[in-house]
Write a protein that binds this DNA or RNA. Structure first.
Lengths: 389, 389
DNA sequence: CGAATTTGTTCTTGTGCAGAACATACTAGG
DNA sequence: CCTAGTATGTTCTGCACAAGAACAAATTCG
């Protein structure tokens, strides 16, 4: 309900240009003019200002072989990076992701059940690494397997055994950089929409199956749907409707009890495996018990996806982790299972696909979280920096 | 991704002031200055422009008994109205709703299973009525019990037996006024958020139980969630998980099969009844069969609400129609049923309440749909009008 | 009845974008 | 190789809008 003034116009336009370059990658200045609808002179001024802030850089025009004066190419400044953090059951994964979404490096620090304090320590150590010398760190983003409030407090992460951990505030305190945290699946949805299977899709649902269960993220009208506390997307905790009683594995079980990674690993005779190994084993096996279990899990998951499609009417459902394997065993059959469970018009409009981003998924998602402020209001950061001096 | 310029600033500010006055009702000019953060001179200019457009009017200052020069009160112009239309199984309800959300008149035209053409006729006739003389009609909004695409085409409305009816386009053609259509429950959600139980709540779920089944609407981050085709909110077509097999009334049934108005009417021995009569009968009865059925429906509905809370993490769940009676039979017990089905942090944040707007609900929702353009960009309407001359 | 207070009104100032005019760098075609 | 054509960068001017200062007006309080 707030009013607008010329200062806000400038900020909004800076953000529009920066976000455009971030999402679409290197782009000629003429391209920016067309995409934003702004005049040539204005775009020139905006790009100059962003260059001055060290957020974008211009390089010599590409040989486009087209008539007319060539336009210099504007690209995200590779020295502007975000730190992505993903604490998990057995390790902390750290990433350096540059503006533009490129994962510059990824490192896995093996720690069993990392605590919040330990996570802060590991991140602080990473910041001193030679690799980051000369880089401008825009912020830190943490993808947490659990419920995270909008202000970056982890309410409950069962697999890490974290409760009420103000991880974002602690990271900011320890490092001096702005830090943010959110649910991993929500960030996965964001990443897939930005640079993965859902580029340009304004309404999508992302479901991820991992060792910790099933998490989900929703993008509605181009924006992540967080809900009032930021906990939206907990599809895994719903109890699924199961038609055939024989399909039920756990009486009164939730979706993540029924559609379950450990059960597949058990049937395969694998104690533990990373996603790549599980995926390979599932594709290779001809064991009827495994294939039967995959089909059963597909039936249960199909109902849950159908329910989500009815409620959210997305253009796209993206399945990640082992859910991509459940889908991949029989994509057409899976679509049919979904069709049976939802209204015809909603089904017509939806496509169901596996996730496109592999191991970079959460790095990109967490980085986007960290970059959000910068992308929404690049000028604000400048003010903050000035104030800090 | 579009750029901004001073013209857009003006439009956005006009919209901010108009929307503020629409939502909060009469407001002093000083109040507008505070709420928008704009300067006194700017607010004066904006209000003058809106007055010139016939959208707001200023009246002499109220005696506020406060120190300082009194501020004139700005209120929505009562001559600016929207036409609300709600075709149903047995009648078409028409309403005249003024800017500010006041339902000025409501009329029920008894028609069994109105067709789309018939609906257009009835609306066109209404437009000639004496009541509307001198009024400025901002637009026509239609609340349809069925699936409506964003462009105002009814994909499927089973109870009206409409398929692929371009009702909005037909109304515009017949009347010359801009017309829009949307799902009735979606508009109900919008109405409750604007002027009902959810004023100021940015994340809410509205579920309505009527003769046609169960419809739902979602408000996320202050905006209605439509999905890619505008069909979001079809909770009624989901198959609910039911723990106790004895609680299932229809094998393989959907939520609206299980939580069902006709079943309650049947047990009460009522052939048909309007919502008020049903509500009264349910409150009065001590028949154990009726009370048992209410409790059973509450158990099923509680699971569905729990699932919605898990996925959407709303601040508020609003139950309308006979679902308010299912809730009302035992509100505390119902909350407990929901708690059992959803994650603790999500449950902590949610309240479950009956709908606050009665018969005006869909009139207000449909009017809001019709007014949306005007409220988002008041200046555009002027341009359109000028172009029409 | 005068002081204090709040707000409307008028005028000036500054900011940012658009668009015109010109400059520049490329392709196309002979 | 040269000229015409075209698209784009650059510079400058004008315009629209909001902010804020200065003043005027209308109320309450003592």
């Amino acid at each position: 309900m707030r009013g607008s003034n010329s200062d806000r116009v400038r900020r909004a336009n800076l953000a529009a240009v920066l976000d455009l370059v971030h999402r679409t990658g290197p782009l000629s200045r003429a391209g920016i003019t067309r995409a934003t609808g702004l005049s040539r002179s204005t775009v020139a001024a905006l790009v100059a200002e962003l260059t001055g802030m060290g957020l974008v850089a211009e390089s010599g025009p590409q040989s486009t072989a087209r008539v007319g004066r060539p336009s210099p190419v504007v690209h995200p400044d590779p020295d502007c990076v975000a730190i992505a953090v993903n604490p998990e059951l057995d390790a902390i994964t750290l990433g350096v992701v540059s503006l533009g979404g490129e994962v510059r490096s990824r490192r896995r620090v093996e720690v069993a059940r990392p605590g919040a304090a330990q996570t802060v320590e590991v991140v602080a150590a990473e910041l001193g690494s030679a690799e980051l010398a000369g880089k401008r760190i825009a912020g830190i983003g943490v993808a947490v397997p659990g419920l995270v409030r909008g202000d970056g407090v982890v309410r409950w992460a069962p697999h890490l055994d974290w409760r009420e951990e103000p991880i974002a505030a602690e990271l900011t305190r320890a490092t001096g950089h702005p830090a943010f945290a959110a649910n991993d699946a929500t960030l996965g949805a964001l990443a897939e929409q930005l640079f993965g299977a859902g580029v340009g899709v304004p309404d999508l649902v992302y479901l991820n199956g991992g060792a910790s269960g099933i998490g989900g993220g929703i993008i509605a009208d181009g924006r992540p749907l967080g809900g009032i506390g930021g906990h939206a997307g907990e599809f895994g905790r719903n109890r699924p409707a199961i038609r055939d009683p024989d399909d039920r594995a756990v009486p009164g079980g939730t979706l993540e009890d029924e559609v379950n990674r450990a059960r597949l690993l058990g049937l395969l005779g694998l104690g533990s495996a990373d996603q790549l190994a599980l995926s390979g084993a599932l594709a290779a096996t001809t064991d009827p018990r495994v294939r039967g279990e995959l089909a059963r899990q597909a039936r249960v998951l199909g109902g849950a996806v159908g329910a989500a499609v009815n409620v959210l009417n997305p253009r796209l459902v993206v399945l990640g982790g082992f859910l991509a394997d459940v889908l991949g065993a029989d994509p057409a059959g899976f679509a049919e299972l979904v069709r049976e469970q939802c209204s015809a018009p909603a089904f017509e409009e939806v496509r169901i696909v596996p996730a496109a981003l592999g191991a970079d998924l959460l790095m990109i998602g967490a980085a986007q979280l960290a970059l959000h402020r910068l992308l929404t209001d690049p000028a604000a950061t400048r003010t903050t920096a000035a104030r800090a001096e």
